[in-house]
Design a binder for these strands. Structure first.
Length: 565
RNA sequence: CGGGAUGUAGCUCAGGUUGGUAGAGCACUAGCAUGGGGUGCUAGGGGUCGCAGGUUCAAUUCCUGUCAUCCCGACCA
């Protein structure tokens, strides 16, 4: 492609609205432009990278036995009403009406559409298993789109769904897709990790997320420093054994703690370790108040609460509600004397001896608090976030944290949708059974952003060859020079037969072309300059910056070795 | 949804406190020169100052509202 004929609007300055590297560079190098918050146009270069990623995805999915189709983005409300998600999905689902006032949604995901399709077309166990996938634009009205392509409201996703007549078959396909995903992210050059995850609103269990390690990641990964264990912090179970001090329990005592509210304030005021404090938070679980207790140095994990209570919503009660229910400000909440409100305590709380907690009375706390003796928790469970230094759940090593960008997710869905939508088949005995399902997603546009985030230097992008928009960037330093012009045209023609090549034929200064080339980040740069008349050109490796002068007759070999390594 | 910030040319920003119909750099157009790391000179084009009200003889500037965008948090296949 001649650069004079395509659209690559590079920017010299960093756009004010972009904070993260991938977003800045995608804008500066002319890959994307924003239309609305979380909505972008993919310009020619970005489109080429998307095509590369999609090709890798298709190849690996096909290899795993999945078949591509394409479903509508515009979906009838009835389907979502059938699964129940019309009501449970919330405002994130973009809803609209047609001219007849019929309700529709823009597809945030496609379980409903695919389940209805397969339900109507597949009736026998003989047709199972079946794995279908598509690459399509998804719409989610995110509360807060951010980081450019990393969290948009309109984004490209590869979503796959599998249908089975047995859990074994599901396990088999799940494994195959897992392998496909590992191949896909490895081929994109990404530094990723598969981690144990929460199934969230999807339902189901056995779910893994593919995380690209990055400081700007929105998820925290808890991983073992010695084994391969890795989990989303939301899910990592705490297996710490809490030792109970053999100190003799003393008698409960109420003390004045004027204006001391936070755990830090109270513990320093009373001269006790934060570990001795009982942090008490009032939650509303499916609207019902529940008092949750954790040790002062721990944090409540609302995902664990949600799973424990099999609830749909878990939220911290607002200050006003807390006052209404417990009669005090949030800084003075405690479990002692609380009636009519369920109390759940983290396992760590049980081994606190002579601890401290709020007195449900402004400016007062209790000291010498002993669980069981001074209050009864309805139950004890693991309801806190794992922390760095905690033992790894697999028993090997200790936990460390890393940030990750979720680029893929595989689920064993089970029969949640097939039961709700009556997707059944007849088994060998002619008996009707709900199909067992799996679903598997890859954020394609997010993967583009993740690669962009991972592969750049201070000058611009450094695309891995597998997803680079072009393999070779040919530059004619001075197109007005006859020798340079004719040699570059000749090379453009010749190299174009074997490589995707971008030819900078613009009448720009050399400096502008070099700066743009560095910014765009194509792996190999071929510069036709002063020595053109002697048949000598310059080959530069974008990644290493290494420059070679080569005769045109050995150019092909040089490029080949550069792209091969 | 809570907190914060910002909306002036395609981009990055000044101007505003002290109201008088708008500027710089980059980009763009034309010409000349230049031609290996964002070149120089000359001459140009481009803005309902986010939008709507209000105050005023007069509002980009002051007041109110509203919308948009970004950041933090909450939220989130």
């Amino acid at each position: 492609m001649r650069q004079s004929m395509t659209l690559i609007p590079t920017l010299r300055e960093v756009p004010a609205d972009a904070d993260v590297k991938s977003h800045q560079l995608l804008l500066r190098a002319g890959f994307i432009r924003q239309n609305a918050s979380g909505v972008y146009s993919y310009l020619p270069l970005a489109k080429r990278v998307l095509v590369k990623i999609e090709a890798i995805v298709r190849e690996e999915m096909d290899k795993a036995g999945a078949v591509e189709l394409l479903m509508p983005a515009l979906q009838q409300a009835e389907l979502w009403q059938e699964s129940g998600r019309w009501y449970s999905y919330g405002p994130e689902l973009m809803r609209l009406k047609d001219r007849h006032e019929r309700e529709f949604a823009l597809g945030a995901t496609h379980e409903e559409v695919i389940t209805s399709l397969v339900r109507d077309e597949v009736k026998s166990y003989k047709r199972l298993p079946l794995t279908l996938y598509q690459i399509q634009t998804k719409f989610r009205d995110e509360k807060r789109p951010r980081f450019g392509l990393l969290r948009g409201r309109e984004f490209i996703m590869k979503d796959a769904y599998s249908f089975h007549s047995s859990p074994e078959s599901l396990a088999d396909v799940y494994e195959r897709i897992f392998t496909a995903y590992s191949n896909i992210f490895a081929r994109c050059g990404l530094n990723y990790r598969a981690v144990i995850a929460d199934s969230g609103a999807m339902g189901g269990k056995d779910t893994l997320e593919f995380m690209v390690l990055s400081d700007i990641g929105e998820d925290t990964i808890a991983y073992s420093d010695t084994s391969s264990y890795a989990a989303n912090i939301e899910m990592a179970p705490v297996v710490a054994a809490y030792e109970k001090s053999d100190e003799a329990p003393r008698n409960l005592e109420k003390v004045k703690t004027e204006n001391q509210k936070t755990i830090a304030e109270v513990s320093s005021f009373l001269q006790v370790n934060e570990m001795q404090c009982i942090k008490s938070l009032l939650f509303k679980i499916d609207g019902r108040p529940v008092l949750v207790l954790v040790r002062g140095d721990h944090e409540v994990n609302d995902i664990k609460l949600k799973n424990l209570f099999e609830a749909t919503t878990v939220e911290l009660a607002e200050a006003g509600e807390t006052k209404e229910i417990l009669g005090c400000e949030v800084g003075s909440v405690g479990p002692i004397g609380v009636k009519d409100v369920e109390i759940i305590a983290d396992d760590a709380v049980k081994s606190i001896v002579n601890g401290v907690c709020g007195a449900n009375e402004e400016h007062y706390h209790y000291v010498n608090v002993n669980p069981e003796k001074d209050f009864e928790a309805g139950r004890y469970a693991d309801v806190r976030f794992i922390q760095e230094g905690d033992p790894s759940p697999d028993g090997q090593g200790n936990i460390l944290f890393a940030k990750g960008i979720e680029v893929g997710h595989v689920f064993k869905l089970g029969t949640r949708y097939s039961e709700a939508m009556d997707a059944v088949y007849l088994d060998e005995n002619g008996k009707s059974q709900p199909m067992i399902m799996g679903c598997y997603g890859i954020g394609v546009s997010r993967t583009l952003a993740a690669v962009a985030e991972q592969f750049n230097d201070d000058k611009g992008f450094v695309w891995p060859a597998a997803v680079a928009p072009y393999k070779v960037h040919l530059i004619a330093v001075n197109p007005k020079d006859e020798a340079q012009s004719s040699l570059s045209e000749e090379l453009y023609e010749a190299l174009g037969k074997n490589y995707e090549i971008l030819f900078d034929d613009r009448h720009e200064r050399a400096g502008v072309k070099f700066a743009d080339a560095d910014l765009i980040g194509i792996p190999v740069r071929v510069t036709v300059g002063k020595k053109a008349a002697d048949g000598i050109v310059e080959v530069k490796n974008r990644k290493t910056g290494e420059v070679l002068e080569v005769q045109t007759n050995s150019l092909a070999d040089t490029i080949k070795s550069l792209l091969g390594s």
